[in-house]
Simulated scan of single mutants.
Amino acid sequence: MDINDLMAEILRQSTHEGCFTLGELLHYSSVRSLTGIGVSKEKTHTFFLVLSGGEPDGAIFVDEKGTLFGDSAVLHLTGSEEFEFFLVAQPIVDALTARCRVFEKCHLKKNGSLDIPTIGAPTRQRVGVLCLTVRDGRAPLAGAHVSIRKGKLVITSDVTDSAGRVCFRLLNGRYMCVVSDRNGERTRCIVEFHEPQVETCVDIGGTEDENR
């Protein structure tokens, strides 16, 4: 059973509470300490927001490319979504949250705004695109597994294409990049970017090139 089928089965057995914008849902569930699941369905994707006691504790984003969980799913919110909200039993919500927990709740500011402030600074973090080209010496490394981490948390991951390239949509900032080649060997390096789009190279046989 895929994630859409699983969620559909859960919602079929749950009580429909109403339809809300993102901001309305966050406010409504918070003031009533509600536990449940909000679902927003578009032609190309589906978004699930898991709330526990009024707090947005989990998120799932599903499209034709696959499924994203937690913080990486939240980055795909635009703030203009319409959600159907269902009241769901606490044990089910707890089980789901364990798989899709949102750690950086600043991603979900009140009123559904996704402009994320940087504490102690006048500027705001922005969502950008980080593209990595993984090489083994001069040769691009296809099929390498690349994960982007903050501390011990895996924010997102993907596999390089035939050109050794992979791209991630992330908040500008500093991340740990972990590369696994086909032999399971790993290379770790720090990646930092503060522009709308950054291209950089990672050489698993050496050190990371400078951002270009």
Results as ranks from 00 to 15, higher is better:
29 S>K: 01
174 R>P: 01
134 V>P: 07
95 A>R: 14
11 L>G: 12
40 S>N: 10
23 G>C: 02
174 R>D: 10
119 I>E: 15
70 G>N: 04
26 L>R: 01
63 D>V: 09
137 G>A: 11
199 E>V: 03
97 T>H: 00
102 V>S: 07
197 Q>P: 01
150 K>M: 04
89 A>S: 15
193 F>D: 02
39 V>P: 02
129 V>W: 09
210 E>K: 12
97 T>I: 15
94 D>L: 11
106 C>Y: 04
166 V>A: 09
167 C>T: 05
86 F>E: 13
76 H>Q: 12
129 V>Q: 14
168 F>A: 03
131 C>R: 15
165 R>D: 04
9 E>Q: 10
132 L>I: 11
55 E>R: 07
176 M>F: 01
184 G>N: 10
21 T>S: 15
46 T>E: 09
156 T>E: 12
20 F>E: 03
121 A>N: 08
208 E>H: 00
212 R>Q: 09
191 V>M: 04
64 E>F: 11
202 V>A: 05
81 E>V: 14
50 V>G: 08
72 S>Y: 01
141 L>T: 05
65 K>I: 11
51 L>S: 05
109 K>Q: 15
125 Q>V: 07
208 E>S: 06
207 T>W: 08
24 E>L: 02
24 E>A: 03
121 A>Q: 13
187 T>E: 03
83 F>H: 09
69 F>C: 08
1 M>I: 06
89 A>T: 11
54 G>Y: 04
97 T>W: 02
100 C>L: 03
101 R>K: 15
49 L>G: 10
108 L>C: 07
25 L>W: 01
146 V>Q: 02
54 G>R: 08
139 A>G: 09
11 L>Y: 06
121 A>I: 00
32 R>L: 13
64 E>D: 15
190 I>W: 00
138 R>W: 08
176 M>T: 13
17 E>D: 11
158 D>T: 08
197 Q>T: 09
14 S>P: 06
134 V>F: 07
119 I>T: 14
205 G>H: 09
117 P>D: 05
202 V>M: 02
64 E>P: 01
67 T>M: 13
184 G>E: 00
174 R>G: 03
162 S>Q: 09
102 V>A: 11
78 T>P: 03
156 T>H: 02
71 D>V: 01
193 F>N: 06
131 C>I: 08
160 T>Q: 02
163 A>L: 10
59 A>D: 06
145 H>V: 08
45 H>D: 10
4 N>S: 05
67 T>V: 15
51 L>W: 01
70 G>H: 00
136 D>S: 15
126 R>E: 13
3 I>H: 00
4 N>R: 10
59 A>W: 03
185 E>S: 07
54 G>P: 06
2 D>T: 08
50 V>K: 03
157 S>H: 12
68 L>N: 12
124 R>H: 15
131 C>N: 09
152 K>W: 03
159 V>W: 03
53 G>A: 05
152 K>F: 05
85 F>E: 14
84 E>L: 13
152 K>N: 08
185 E>W: 00
90 Q>I: 13
48 F>R: 05
76 H>F: 09
125 Q>T: 12
129 V>M: 14
163 A>Y: 06
161 D>W: 07
